[in-house]
Amino acid sequence: MLDKAMLEMLLEGIRDTLYMTLLSTFFGYIIGLPLGIVLTLTDKDGIAPNKIIYRILDIIINITRSIPFLILLILLIPLTKLIVGKSYGATATIVPLTFAAAPLIGRMVESSLKEVNQGVIEAAISMGARKRMIIFKVLIGEARTSLLVGVTIVLGTVLGYSAMAGVVGGGGLGDIAIRYGYYRYNTKIMLITLIFIVVIVQLMQGLGMLAAKRLDHRR
């Protein structure tokens, strides 16, 4: 069926895909989670409304989200080199993937946190809770299932973006599917990589949903 070299390539592809997807999503949340929190707090119905900050972040997010990933990948090369010292390879793609994921994550977090019952937030305010307590205990605590569902969606999206990593030699399953499956008409390889991608996405989705369900005490 598959020769050894092909098999090795596929295994490497799985490793690269997971490496890029998981790390980019992780770093994406380091930027995106605070971003989503600030958006929630500064929106007009938030607990610290601030039109200017909200507007600025809103515009930045809309701009970065409008840039096609391929272009972002190229535009960020100087920054990538600054951060990881290399413009090519799997590690180098984590930088643009992170920056593509962060605004998406910011929006997902914002929408999750805004689902939290306003009344519960008010109750916390009436108890004299500090903002930090409201953010962590009430907003994040109450929205945790929605936030987790968001993580699974982000993982899927980042995995999709990572298919473009081949442009800068990032590798991964998506790149194999494009280069061997599409460019070289190797339908078998295309099919195998697609199956792997589907399985990975399903696994992440399944685990995420299971965790979300476990953590949800609302019913």
């Binding site: 019952n117 009344g119 008010e122 605590g141 109450e142 945790r144 005490h217």
Partner: peptide, 11 residues
Amino acid sequence: FQHFNLLEQQT
């Protein structure tokens, strides 16, 4: 409150 406003994810 009318709708109690308890933390739904906490015991």
